[in-house]
Amino acid sequence: MKARSYLGFLLRRLVQALVVVVLSYTATFLIINVLPGDPITNMLLDPDNGFSQAEIAPIIAYYGLDRPVPEQLWNSFSRFVTGDLGISLRSNLPVAGLVLEALPSTLVLASSALTVALLVAFALAYGSQNLPPRWGQGILRSIPAVSLAVPTFIIGIFLIQLFAFQLGLFRITSPDSAAATFFAALALGLPVSAQIAEVLITNLDHEARQDYFAVARSRGLSRGALFRRHQLKSSSLPVVTMIALAVGELLGGSLITEAIFGRKGIGSLVQSAAAAQDFPVLLAVVALAAVVFVAVNLLADLVYPLLDPRLRRRRGTAGDAA
């Protein structure tokens, strides 16, 4: 009974996720190809770009640009499913190769940033509950709100100014060194940590106002034990959802961070593609980002009921006889 209902939930969520992926692809495709009037053809025919007729014909044939839009979409999507992400207009290389080449650097950056974000967020949250209220707590509690008002690029520039130019802890000329990666991850992760910390602190405060918190306190638990046993778990559960949502944030933020720190990755790939109107690359990256986002959120949704007993199927409330 319990297993079957979870299976049903799993299947429903899976279908939903697939629908969202298909719709996201369609939306992206339409934005690029239809709304502003087929930018690929426009670009190919622009004499400034210097495509010869011999070069144009196979590209038009590949994308089926002379075919009706639904057919183009279907072609494009079925290629996407098989892993063919198209050909870059700028470099004439397969997009899949470009993405694969850029991916590792961004993965390292994003996962370190997420680690930084979680560490900072939990440290702030711990301090917000356990430091003496007069000093410490007040300052700690205002950190997330303030850092949410600071643009990502400022954090990056500030870190470079201070740690690269003033203190010489890393060199901007070797962006893939461990030190440079650490500071880039810091720049990317701090805004995310502020978001997570805000939610965490709100939840911790909420838990501290609950009846069961006072009742547990009346059982003689110490401040630390109360934090560990009665605040942390239920407050951390929403963080699972937040991590899933942060995936999009980290991907988007990588554009700015990679630009500032001079890293080569998905962000810089998008940057150059946008500058060169290289739409097959943009379509591929956006579609892949949507797939990753949907997959991670699906995972979070599926894990959530396992972490929160209230969301598990009720085992039938046995008897009202007190």
Partner: peptide, 17 residues
């Protein structure tokens, strides 16, 4: 769908188009 496409990417996409 709107959530699935990261905000920043969506903006870049729209501006490029």
């Amino acid at each position: 769908v709107l959530l699935a496409i990261p905000n920043f990417l969506l903006a870049v996409l729209i501006v490029s188009a």
